[in-house]
């Protein structure tokens, strides 16, 4: 981190480490590969330019940088969403072209399980979905999420719990419909 601040050419390892996380975060928000790529590009270009101003805090240097990077991502996504709102949104599962397994039966089961999970989080309000993605996909701690979303840790815990409750209710409805 310090090396990258002194010499921007040392930024590449940080980019390689976090590009997938930032892209994934953007994709879950925007549901569009191209827009997620555009946001990812904007985030890293902005981070590289702003790197000299980044103030590394004492504890958990690695996660401090990640929080800073995700704050940039959150702002970039807010800008992008203003544009997206003017266009119809695709459902989340339609944005993903998933082919993970060779076995057709297993693939079908996997697709169905993924579809159920996506459907459940797709119907969540924006802030709840974002908190869940940061918790489950990016595997961030509550304090990291709080720092990114600009909320208290307690508020984030409650947000995640409510999101989980909504997902559970959605899954219950899914099961009832299947019967």
């Amino acid at each position: 981190m310090e090396a990258a601040r002194r010499d921007p050419r040392a930024f590449e390892p940080l980019y390689r480490k976090y590009v997938g996380q930032v892209y994934s975060f953007a994709l879950y928000e925007l549901r569009d590969h191209h827009r997620a790529e555009d946001v990812t590009e904007a985030v890293f270009l902005r981070a590289l330019t702003a790197l000299p101003r980044f103030d590394e805090r004492g504890e958990g240097a690695d996660s401090t940088f990640r929080v800073w990077l995700f704050r940039i991502a959150r702002n970039a996504l807010a800008n992008e969403r203003r544009h997206v709102r003017r266009h119809p949104e695709a459902p989340l599962d339609a944005a993903f072209d998933v082919a993970v397994l060779d076995d057709p039966a297993a693939r079908a089961a996997e697709r169905e399980a993924l579809a159920v999970a996506w459907r459940a989080i797709d119907r969540l309000p924006e802030d709840r979905r974002r908190a869940l993605v940061l918790r489950f996909v990016e595997e961030m701690t509550t304090s990291e999420i709080a720092a990114i979303l600009g909320r208290s840790e307690g508020a984030v815990r409650v947000l995640i719990h409510r999101a989980l409750r909504s997902v559970a209710a959605e899954l219950g409805r899914d099961r009832d419909e299947a019967r």
Binding site: R9, F11, E12, Y15, R16, V19, G20, Q21, Y23, S24, L27, A36, E37, T40, E41, F44, L45, L48, F96, A113, L114, V116, A117, A120, I121, L132, V133, F136, V137, E138, L164, V167, L171
Partner: peptide
């Protein structure tokens, strides 16, 4: 379900390399 099914996506190799080039 969410812990096991919500996967992390990675951008395409082509995009990753093109952006790395631009950042360099």
């Amino acid at each position: 379900l969410l812990a096991s099914r919500l996967v992390r996506f990675h951008p395409s190799f082509r995009f990753e390399e093109a952006l790395a080039t631009r950042l360099r």
